[in-house]
Design a protein around this nucleic acid. Structure first.
Lengths: 146, 146
DNA sequence: TAGTGCGGTTTCCAAAAGAAACTATAGCTT
DNA sequence: AAGCTATAGTTTCTTTTGGAAACCGCACTA
């Protein structure tokens, strides 16, 4: 039951889904953990989603992914590039054009991300309504129920 | 062109997908942005995924989501609870049992997350192989190509 | 000669995450 | 009765990360 990539969780517990991969993000030491973080991280998810519609240049990306700083965008892109999800292509030395595109694996995860994002956006009405209730109940006495 | 929930991105640009919702995570001011962060955040994604198979108690969750601290797990759960994605249910005063479950919206996003996680795990072989190349090329001279 | 846009890196400070200790409850053990 | 266990957190402190702004080199433009 050891010998695997860093999976630590108890797989004999049927609660855990059985992947066909030896990777398990629930395990702290599994290399898939940091990769998932790059993909789902605060900016990684938006960057990947923004790259879905073809090549985008650095400053375009900055404008699309509203609010990201240059430093963090550069970091995010480096990480995703090293993971093989995005491709950096320098087009010309002047006016210094660099295009970022999704690799095939990048397209796969970006597609899933897009679905997730769409789902989240679709849940927003419910979320906002719920928060109203939640906050007013909390104000009324959060230890009071049951 | 204004009047919307905080969307700032230029929707006339056909590059942007057209949701049927007025929410746009790419906009810094859109309320969906923090919600996406709760869901895709470092721990939020794992917590939601871990809750997919029925109710889980606090310390079980801590064990499953390997590496999370108590403080951050509590924070994460609070945020997800306030968003209406997870439900906190106190079962007994002694031995103080608290169960966390997914709400229906929570199940929807957790399902998408699970797909994403599965996709990431499935990409790991490719990722690890790519990194080897990438790192050795970078060592050989990262400004050398083209 | 100064200004522009591009693609970043560097610096510095604020915000967030992590580790460890602490709280409270209340049964069970000795 | 004293102390141990387990539950579910909160508090405190340190380390890591994120963000704003400035800076860089390049090469064209006014």
């Amino acid at each position: 039951m050891s010998g695997s990539i860093g999976r630590v969780a108890d797989k004999s517990d049927p609660v855990y889904k059985a992947d066909d991969t030896p990777f398990d993000v629930f395990s702290r030491t599994c290399p898939s953990r940091p990769v998932l973080e790059h993909v789902t991280g605060r900016w990684g998810s938006l960057v990947l989603a923004a790259l879905q519609n073809g090549p985008v240049r650095f400053n375009d990306l900055r404008r699309r992914v509203d609010g990201v700083s240059q430093k963090v965008l550069a970091q995010t892109l480096h990480a995703l590039e090293r993971d093989g999800f995005v491709n950096r292509h320098q087009l010309s030395v002047f006016p210094l054009r660099v295009e970022y595109t999704l690799t095939p694996p990048g397209q796969d995860v970006a597609a899933k991300l897009l679905e997730l994002i769409t789902q989240v956006e679709a849940s927003m009405d419910s979320v906002l309504a719920f928060r109203q209730d939640y906050d007013s109940n909390a104000a009324a006495g959060h230890t009071a129920r049951a």
